[in-house]
């Protein structure tokens, strides 16, 4: 069989699209690129205001460790007050 050893597969060609040093905001409609400064422990999304704690896999490779709970919880409560029927919002408060 003619196996083309040189030709890159679809998956291989996509490697060039990879980026380091940044990640996306976790808010679905936002998904903005966040670029924490080297070694930074916390980052705030300039678009939606969510804040995240940062973990560094490598010096050039950050990931979201978790939310800054107090901040993101407040944002969630604001969104809930706007969007949720009262009954559901009440359940959250219990």
């Amino acid at each position: 069989m003619a196996i083309d050893t040189e030709k890159l597969s679809g998956a291989e060609t996509l490697r060039k699209t990879r980026t380091y040093g940044k990640f996306r905001c976790h808010n679905p409609s936002c998904m903005g690129r966040l670029t924490p400064a080297a070694g930074e422990k916390q980052v705030r999304c300039p678009v939606c205001g969510m804040e995240f704690r940062v973990h560094w896999i490598r010096p050039d490779f950050p990931r979201i460790r978790g939310p800054v709970w107090d901040v993101n919880r407040r944002l969630a409560e604001e969104a809930a007050a706007k969007k949720l029927p009262k009954k559901a919002a009440k359940k959250e408060g219990k």
Binding site: N27, C30, C48, M50, A76, A79, A80, P85
Partner: peptide, 13 residues
């Protein structure tokens, strides 16, 4: 029937 109650603002509801 039951909306998401927590998480990112866009996930709520």
């Amino acid at each position: 029937d039951e909306p998401c109650l927590r998480g990112a603002p866009d996930v709520i509801g």
